[in-house]
Design a protein around this nucleic acid. Sequence first.
RNA 1: GUGGGUGUAGCUCAAAGGUUAGAGUGCCGGGUUGUGGCCCCGGAGGCUGUGGGUUCAAGUCCCAUCACUCACCCCA
Length: 421
Amino acid sequence: MERITSIRGFRDILPGESEKWQFVEEKAREIFGAYGVREIRIPILEKTDLFRRGIGETTDVVEKEMYTFVDRGEESLTLRPEATASVIRAYIEHNFFETDPVTKLFTIGPMFRRERPQKGRYRQFHQINVEMLGYEDPRIDGELISMLMLFLSELGIGDLDLEINSLGCADCRPVFREEVVRFLDHREESLCPDCRRRLQTNPLRVFDCKVETCREAVREAPVILDSICAGCRDHFEKVKELLDALAVPFRVNPRMVRGLDYYKRTAFEVIGHSLGSQNAVAGGGRYDGLVQELGGPDIPGIGFAIGFERLVSMLPGDETSFSSKPSLYIATLGTAAETFAFRLLHDLRKTGLQAETDYSGKSLKAQMKRAGRSGAPYVLIVGENELAEGAVVLRNMGAGTQEKVAISELHAKLKEIFHAR
RNA sequence: GUGGGUGUAGCUCAAAGGUUAGAGUGCCGGGUUGUGGCCCCGGAGGCUGUGGGUUCAAGUCCCAUCACUCACCCCA
């Protein structure tokens, strides 16, 4: 029979890696909990218009990366390419703002973008998202960013750079945008084809183009931090002061722009140097105006997304530090021993002990070999003779010692060794 | 969407165009050992990604296609 494989860009998270995912999720709940950030679980399918309006019609994500289809001739649906729009949709739909002036939410789950896969980039990938809604005060910016950095450092991840910038607001960004367009129009000759296109669609993106001639052209261009309005400048200065006050190291990158339209004012990115080309492990920013844009009241917000796969790939420690081994292996000889072992396994597992045995009728020697290779620290040997004596043999594989344990005392003995329930 | 690299045993990889495609590891069985990881012996496991072409002869060269992978692009 021909084999059916997984879809391009979609991958399986196998045992060995899935334990790392659990570790990260537990840590997220622990740290976010201290900041009063509560979990929200949202659908992975939404109406296409949510993303068109939320992310922006002319963004690459909306223009050419979404998995969009018509649902049985009814309406256009899209597998979510990011989470913020969905979280805001739920926030508005359930009227959070009526009961809670401040709402802090996180969600973890798969996102879908139809890009060409490469290292750290898959068509189904996963994000941890945090959104904090209701405060315009820069202290919430400081809280969110420092929480992110704390989370990353608690996971033991080093070699990270935090970059921040201000993108201006609805008042000053359009002005700056015009300035940039005027400036670049004179230099269109020296821009790469991509950037000529960007000039029409998203001129600010020319700033982080990697083509040398474009970098030249932009060198003398107006800088957004010089052009933003007094309110935005003040906000940005405060954010920097707050990060300094918490001793969170950062670097201002005036060329950083974001690919999603909703970002305003504070924008930030965490760069992981071991990641290769796709080196952003987390990114986010303020999105004042988005709630209103999606039909809610005028409530400010800020959030970030962490790339789960990229995060896991940066986790310290090898596979073995996350792998699971049985605590006890039961080797049997004869039918009566097999029956005894089957019931014993059930009882031990009820107490939370990870125990294993063999059902294929292998020789005792083969079972001992398998026990040795499984890495189980203890092996229980149950034979006909042992059962007749009313005592089984417990071997300590590490110490190379063994002792006879009366069956009547077996449970107590194992509880003592493994601290089981 | 555009480029580059790679496709051989479950996994990691060999095999100047020339017999029956090999090794390590893993798996199964046996031997040795204080009933155990080490060591020794044996076994199973392959349409060499797929389809064409060149040649007396193709895993090897050419074309196409698919997959994986890295980079551009984009983003987390």
